[in-house]
Design a protein around this nucleic acid. Structure first.
Lengths: 199, 199
DNA sequence: GTCTATACGCCGATAGAC
DNA sequence: GTCTATCGGCGTATAGAC
């Protein structure tokens, strides 16, 4: 192994700092309005050259960011599925997570909901085909079979349900809704669930 | 007046061609991935220089585009309000319009729903503060007073209602839902209206 | 491993001929 | 009114000293 112990900041730590700086700037100003100079400065690095020790290009910074966010979302979804049996409970768990993230890590939600990843990384799969979202569609399909959810095209159900959830979170993130996401959670969950639940 | 009759293409017509080309490219590749050269070629103009006869900068092309789309939306909303009395009917008219636009002028809907205008034109008002959207919020407020719509924060009602509508249209525009918008309209309208209607 | 200096390309915008 | 030519600048990325 190349680096067992090290008292100073490790390579992985600086990488994380860079990713954190990039996340902040990308959601703040947009990917194309932020230069590598911006990222270096925000990450506390003097020169853009140092960045190339950690990432081979600006695009790969965005790619790594996108991957990390999807990975951690995926882990959370697995966790929620493991700890809840009924599809309704699993969806509830996911909604809880999204509202919590909106209040506690708004940049992550802004990145997920507002960044046009296709403009930045044209090669990437559409969001709906990534692991966590495939799993969410599966939850919906299970809910339909179990008779908890109305029998429509699962993607349409997804669309109605997360349409309500996401749009509300976007308005919170914009400031168009002025309280914390938490304040709207129960009403929004009820509206979203009611829209797709079989009565 | 400077130009009464003219047999060749008028200035206004070329302007429209440029705007149309820009619209197509912006929603296709993103604003920052399209150069003035791209726009000139798509508009059937040989050189970027000619563009400056019609627009003083790339930004003003985007600004004019944004303004035109909002203007025509605004006119349509006025029309719908004039021709329908009940808030529920007015909302229904707006939903009809949005679904129709998605099938017949998808670029316009992509521009409205998917382009991050703040990254391109930082000075612009947020969408919710523009004329047509202010009017839509007013419709909702009227509906609440009239007892047709549940008594919640009007912006939250807006969010739930158009969350369902817009998210569904976005999935149609992406191809994640594979039929025309028209095929989902009645189900989606019912879901959205049911979410906000007083029972 | 981080700096300075610099190469290189692309793009927006301008000047001026026709 | 549209062309050719060109400027100036920015931003990514590289080379090489320390």
């Amino acid at each position: 192994m190349d680096q067992d112990k090290d008292t100073t900041t490790s390579k992985a730590e600086t990488q994380d700092e860079i990713l954190l700086a990039a996340l902040k700037l990308f959601v703040d100003q947009g990917y194309f309005n932020t230069s590598l100079t911006d990222i270096a400065q925000t990450a506390g690095i003097q020169s853009t050259s140092a960045l190339y020790q950690y990432f081979i290009s600006k695009q790969t910074i965005a790619a790594k960011l996108y991957g990390s966010i999807l990975d951690s979302l995926n882990i959370s979804v697995d966790d929620i599925r493991r700890r809840n049996q009924k599809p309704s409970e699993q969806l509830r768990g996911i909604v809880d997570l999204l509202f919590k993230l909106t209040d506690e890590a708004p940049e992550i939600m802004q990145f997920l909901l507002l960044v046009k990843i296709k403009d930045i990384l044209p090669e990437q799969k559409p969001l709906l085909e990534t692991a966590p979202f495939v799993k969410i569609i599966k939850i919906i399909q299970t809910g339909i079979k179990a008779g908890e959810i109305r029998n429509l095209d699962p993607v349409l159900v997804f669309s109605h349900f997360f349409g309500i959830i996401n749009h509300t979170l976007v308005l919170v993130l914009n400031g168009a809704l002025d309280k914390k996401a938490d304040a709207y959670q129960s009403q929004t969950w009820l509206a979203a669930w009611h829209t797709i639940a079989k009565k």
